[in-house]
């Protein structure tokens, strides 16, 4: 069963992203939004090799270039991701 992990906290201010990566399965993906978009600059995501999405408006607002290992989505894309994956787990 695949899970979409939604992370909105910056990985540079707490350990949610690290905790998320520890439980992330091979079929899972991570959606970065809000300050979580700073995860694009975090080495942990690059080395883990998990599928990564970022909410377009949040990476744009923070002027974060999109690395080749991540894809950006708008809100309709967010809705579609929540359908494509069996569960959505938000790291509140």
């Amino acid at each position: 069963m695949s899970t979409l992990h939604v992370v909105s906290h910056s990985p540079f201010t707490d350990s949610r992203l690290d905790s998320c990566l520890r439980v992330c399965g091979s079929d899972d993906a991570i959606l970065l939004c809000g300050d979580g978009a700073y995860g694009l600059r975090h080495p942990a995501l690059l080395t883990k090799g998990v599928k990564v999405f970022v909410l377009a408006e949040d990476s744009l607002a923070r002027n974060l270039p999109l690395p080749d290992w991540a894809d950006c989505v708008d809100y309709p894309g967010f809705v579609q991701l929540s359908i494509d994956y069996d569960k959505v787990n938000t790291w509140l």
Binding site: S8, H9, G34, D35, S82, I83, K87, V88, T90, W91, L92
Partner: peptide, 10 residues
């Protein structure tokens, strides 16, 4: 529902 989506935090 088919999906529960939670929003919170920053």
């Amino acid at each position: 529902a088919d999906r529960l989506i939670c929003f919170g935090g920053p």
